[in-house]
Design a protein around this nucleic acid. Structure first.
Lengths: 205, 205
DNA sequence: GATTGATGTTGCTGCTGTCAACATAGCCGA
DNA sequence: TCGGCTATGTTGACAGCAGCAACATCAATC
């Protein structure tokens, strides 16, 4: 007993109280999603992996859906942070929009489970939870960037959607493996793909 | 007994054998999906709606996932047909690509359950089933159209993905209600949105 | 040091996917 | 005409799951 004040709150699995069960469950859920997909996820399996009884998750999440929503909210926060950071170094509107698209696709590839949940859940529209908070921030970030690139008179929402659809569609197709794997093998190839998608206007005459 | 030869095979629900249980189950499943989403779908509920015992579906589908895959396959066939029909009247490459994008988004809005299953299932990549058949046809349709619009030297797959991502992303965002509802209220507004997304190059200089 | 609220456990109910054994019916050859 | 064959549908069972209620444990506070 030198200067042992207290155990770190995140890693006590041998005591009655877990310490940080909520984030442990979130992490376990993401791992299960990666291994078995959303249809193979169960709260009981998450509890088992964390070493806790099958009803313990209900102290932190009202339902299985609430846990998934929490993961999505985490994803929106990360996405917003990544987009902000990516755009920060640039002032040119086109460069900023480009940086946003790049970081968007990179985020989807880095956190596929989060990304899928963020846009695949079928009930997150009704409840304006904390998820909506960061989702709105991310949306406004994109809309402002798109508006700065568009000529005056264009509806901001139309501009935002037009430029959102491209990286979003690419990300979705990449996650669904609908794109030949060779296209994503090297970072250079992926970057080329992203550029071609986000502003492919150089091709059409 | 005038000329009554046989009862129509699609609508006998009072006899021991249903007549066309397979398609009846598919239709019921799509309806359940529309009402309760994929997480609220169960084979037992589908069987109940069709008026059949809970194990009857297993005579037509190996598993719940197989039923979902069948719906997705149906969707790919429809999508391919719609894309072909939409492009047929045109010969100009840009017009053909435009028509494809328009029909793509229209298909997603007309058959949201099918569309979501087509691109959201997490295991359809492994098994090259009949679904892959029509999916490949649809992909080749798009790739050829994109290639006709691209300058020589462009990788066909890159061109295809670049032009696929736009309507695909827009469709996904529309289905997830991530786009203000007012944007989709009128057919004209929707068409404007689609055009802006599919070839927004007119805006950036 | 007792109390209280947060956190974790045990046990239960109803639902689900899936399988095995059985029932029915339409069809085909004798 | 009749008897069997096969496709199709039924019943019953099992294990796993979401969610709830009642109970247990712990930590902090008065």
């Amino acid at each position: 007993m030198t200067t042992v004040t207290d155990t770190p709150p995140a890693s006590r699995t041998d005591t009655y109280h877990h310490g940080d069960l909520r984030t442990a469950l979130l992490d376990a859920a993401v791992q299960v999603l990666a291994e078995h997909g959303v249809s193979g996820l169960s709260l009981r399996e998450c509890a088992r992996r964390v070493g806790v009884s099958h009803a313990a998750p209900y102290r932190h999440f009202a339902s299985k859906e609430a846990l998934l929503a929490a993961i999505a909210a985490q994803g929106f926060a990360w996405l917003y942070a990544a987009g902000s950071a990516a755009m920060a170094p640039f002032t040119d509107p086109v460069a900023r929009l480009d940086a946003y698209g790049l970081s968007y696709v990179r985020f989807a590839l880095a956190h596929p489970q989060h990304f899928r949940l963020m846009f695949t859940s079928e009930c997150s529209r009704d409840a304006p939870t904390a998820e909506g908070q960061d989702a709105d921030l991310a949306y406004r970030l994109l809309r402002d960037a798109a508006l700065a690139v568009s000529p005056p008179g264009v509806d901001p929402d139309v501009a935002a959607v037009a430029y959102w659809s491209r990286p979003h569609g690419l990300a979705m197709l990449l996650l669904d493996a609908r794109i030949p794997a060779a296209r994503v093998a090297s970072a250079a190839a992926l970057t080329e793909l992203i550029h071609a998608t986000v502003h492919g206007e150089r091709w059409t005459r």
